[in-house]
Simulated assay, not measured.
Amino acid sequence: MSSIPQQTAIESPVVTDPAWCYRASAAALLVLVSGGQTLAADCALEPQGEGRVAAVLDGRSLRLEDGREIRLAGIERGGTDSARGRAALSAIAGSRDVTLHGDDDSPDRYGRQGAILFATGSEQSVQGELLRRGEALFSADIADKNCAAALAAAERAARDAKLGIWSDAMAIKNTESPGDILAAVGQFTVVEGRVLSVRQAGAITYLNFGRNWTRDFAATIPRRIIPAFEGAGLGPKSLENRRIRVRGIVSSRGGPRIELLRVGQIEVLGGK
């Protein structure tokens, strides 16, 4: 998965050239600030409209006054309490004017528009704020690298501080307890352990965390995705005997499984 943050100081010389001022302002917006927070530029993708929040539907969905249903991109709630998730999102965005950013505004099959959301007057995205408070999990489905890094950093800050979701010792499942992972079937889950072996079967590569395929946890990578992992220095064979953290929807095929479709779903935790 990802890493970053750091505090940077920018001096503002006294100048009157409007072009210089514009460039300096744009540069300043790109700076990461301390504590896992990020300025708007990190996730200010293409603007996709604006509106006012009429209702919060759950921990990552809301409806605008014009009837559009918005699904917050880049985050998941996992198996956490739905009422708590709705309350957290309401506290940040409820009844607020918001702007939407994203790659496009095409609705998904349920008619929801995926977007990075900013409440008017806030330089922190709604997603970043939820992650910073430990009220969401980074889903790794953001293509923009700056935005993905900013959201991952916000989650990491909450995890290090044991805030919200991360105050629960079971927030990260251990691969040595496959039963705990299996209990999360259908949920977005974070799992951690050592890869014991890497095997290919047909078009699927298996990162095996145990020796019994009918019981133990494994992460799977489809053949078509392998080049992306190799390009990021995460070729499957290089992960053998490494301790890693993976995230995704848990399924059950023999033992519990998580399918890896994006490089950001893997985080290497240490040496061999």
Rank of each mutant, 00 (worst) to 15 (best):
G111H: 03
G78M: 07
L130I: 02
G114N: 11
R71D: 11
E135F: 09
I92L: 15
D105H: 10
T99C: 05
G59W: 05
Q124D: 11
G102F: 03
G121E: 04
Q124R: 13
L117H: 06
R96L: 02
G134L: 06
A87F: 03
E65N: 12
Q124K: 07
S122D: 14
G51S: 02
I75F: 02
E123Q: 14
R60E: 13
L117C: 13
S95M: 09
L62R: 00
Y110C: 01
S122C: 08
E123G: 13
R112L: 07
E69D: 13
D58N: 15
G134W: 14
I70M: 00
S95D: 14
D66P: 07
V126G: 10
D66A: 03
E129W: 02
Q127F: 08
A91H: 09
S125C: 11
L64N: 11
L62I: 00
R96K: 15
G74I: 01
G94H: 07
P107S: 12
T80L: 05
L72G: 04
G114Y: 01
V53N: 06
Y110L: 11
A87K: 14
V56F: 00
S90A: 14
D97T: 12
G51V: 02
R84A: 15
L57C: 01
G78Q: 05
S95T: 12
F118A: 04
E123M: 12
T99Q: 15
H101G: 00
L117A: 06
V126E: 12
L64R: 07
I116D: 02
E50G: 12
R52N: 01
I116H: 10
R60T: 01
E129K: 15
S125W: 05
A91E: 15
R71C: 08
L89P: 09
S95F: 13
A73M: 09
A88E: 12
E69I: 13
E50C: 02
P107F: 06
G51L: 05
G51I: 00
S125A: 15
V56S: 02
D66T: 03
G67C: 00
Y110M: 09
R68I: 04
A55G: 01
L100D: 06
T80N: 12
R132P: 02
S125M: 05
A136C: 07
I92N: 09
L130K: 12
L62K: 04
S95A: 15
T120P: 00
D81P: 12
S61L: 03
T120N: 14
G121K: 08
E129Y: 00
F118V: 00
G85V: 09
A88N: 06
A73N: 10
G111I: 05
E65F: 06
A115G: 07
T80G: 04
L62G: 04
G121P: 03
G78T: 07
R96E: 14
L117W: 05
L131T: 04
S82L: 12
D108I: 09
L100S: 08
D103C: 00
I70G: 06
L64F: 11
L62D: 08
R52G: 06
R109K: 08
R109D: 11
I92P: 11
R96A: 15
T99L: 04
G74F: 02
S125G: 14
I75N: 06
L57K: 06
